[in-house]
Amino acid sequence: MAVADTIKTYITTELAPDLDASKLANDQSLLTTGVLDSLRIVKLIAFLDDEFGVEVTDDEFDPDNFETIDAIAKLVEEKKG
């Protein structure tokens, strides 16, 4: 599964299970729509570590990096090198 799809599945099953995955676009804001709050981001970061072996540092824990599924996937891809 592509990185973005894996992230989307986690968000729509674990973090925001009320959300209809088919209605969540990869470029849609997760912050202004309230899909992610600061606590859910912390949990998402733990997931990224478990799933992709990617450790998000304190200064990367920035809302901009978590604005959309595409942005999160980009962060993961960059860190995986």
Binding site: S38, V42, D58, D59, F61, D62, P63, D64
Partner: peptide
């Protein structure tokens, strides 16, 4: 300190 919007990241850390 940090970028605009980084406040929550700073506070969490």
């Amino acid at each position: 300190l940090g970028r605009e919007g980084a406040g929550s990241a700073i506070f969490n850390a």
